[in-house]
Design a protein around this nucleic acid. Structure first.
Lengths: 179, 179
DNA sequence: CACAAAGTTCAAAGGTTCTTAAACTTCGCA
DNA sequence: TGCGAAGTTTAAGAACCTTTGAACTTTGTG
């Protein structure tokens, strides 16, 4: 969808990350990007989920070829969304991160939030438009009807999207031990 | 979501387009942009739908403050997607455009196409990753299990999205005379 | 406390997408 | 056929998003 590529070094990344791990992290990165998040959000989560043991920022940074700042920002996002948590390791003074498994929940939450903002604004604007149009002198009633129909269509989209997010979450909880 | 603003002239666009029309076209533009299309696709369709009579390229251009090239490209897209059609007017040698009403159909089609491409690629990559990982010497079976679980999650997303697109189209056909 | 390591922030760089303007092509008509 | 209007294509540029890298702040430990 976006396809940014900021790799500055020409080093083969497989020298630090096995191909199979790269395939998995990139695949999850693609999926998460499709849903409107950043590719690296998915890559970091997938790496932590695969490794199954806490990783430090610098380990993540090296494995995925990211900058220190990027790892800081991405892990903070993932933590806010509750899909990653921060733990202490006895052997090190640095924070380590582990993957949580509630992945669809994050997607559903953010989609519903985005959708809500959009639809409420659109509904307001279309209502205003209808009011202003009806105040016009030589207004065709058919035009007013069309505005009203668009308003209903927007509401329908909202319902459909709501159904989707609920279904997606339900499917996950149905097979709760999937991840 | 995107929100580009290339308005070069500082002229008030309401001098050429009544406020209520601008509200409607912008609202539809916002919705369509949310679905991954360009804002101006929605604006042009909404204008044609509101006006209820064929409009020439230059009329669209002036009403929505677009360039000649932009109108050409946008109308071509809309025509390919069958949400706008091109007609001849007796009074003019120029093509005119009218809005079709199958709006959700276009969204559903394009979503399913995008989704299909993505999911099939992800499925392939995760399958490859699982195969490569299982060929490793000291591979933990639990890790293989996690790759397999991600593969299943991807399939689940596909199903959920499919349900959504079908539901959205179904809702429209149920109320087929909505628009 | 001091200092070193870890973590955060943000201006600037790098990359992608969209729009425009101008060159180019096609179409309608005399 | 030749001309002008209509329409299409595309290189250049504007706007936007993401990442980086360095300065800055916080944290842990002797």
């Amino acid at each position: 969808m976006k396809g940014y590529n900021y790799r500055t070094t020409d080093n083969d990344p497989t020298t630090t990350l096995p191909l199979w791990e790269a395939l998995v992290t990139d695949a999850v990165g693609d999926v998460i990007e499709f849903w409107g998040f950043k590719r690296n959000h998915g890559r970091v989560w997938a790496l932590l989920y695969l490794r199954r043991q806490p990783m430090s920022s610098s380990e993540i940074q090296e494995a995925l070829d990211l900058s220190k700042g990027a790892v800081s920002m991405i892990t903070r996002d993932l933590e806010v969304w509750s899909v990653v948590s921060r733990v202490r390791q006895a052997t090190s003074s640095a924070w380590h991160f582990v993957a949580e498994v509630e992945f669809m929940q994050m997607i559903g939450q953010v989609l519903e939030q985005r959708e809500g903002q959009l639809i409420s604004r659109v509904a307001t604007d279309l209502k205003d438009a209808g009011r202003l149009a009806s105040e016009q002198e030589d207004m065709d009633p058919e035009t007013l009807e069309r505005i009203e129909r668009m308003r209903r269509l927007a509401g329908m989209m909202q319902q459909a999207l709501e159904i989707f997010t609920r279904t997606a979450q339900l499917d996950v909880s149905k097979t709760r031990d999937l991840l």
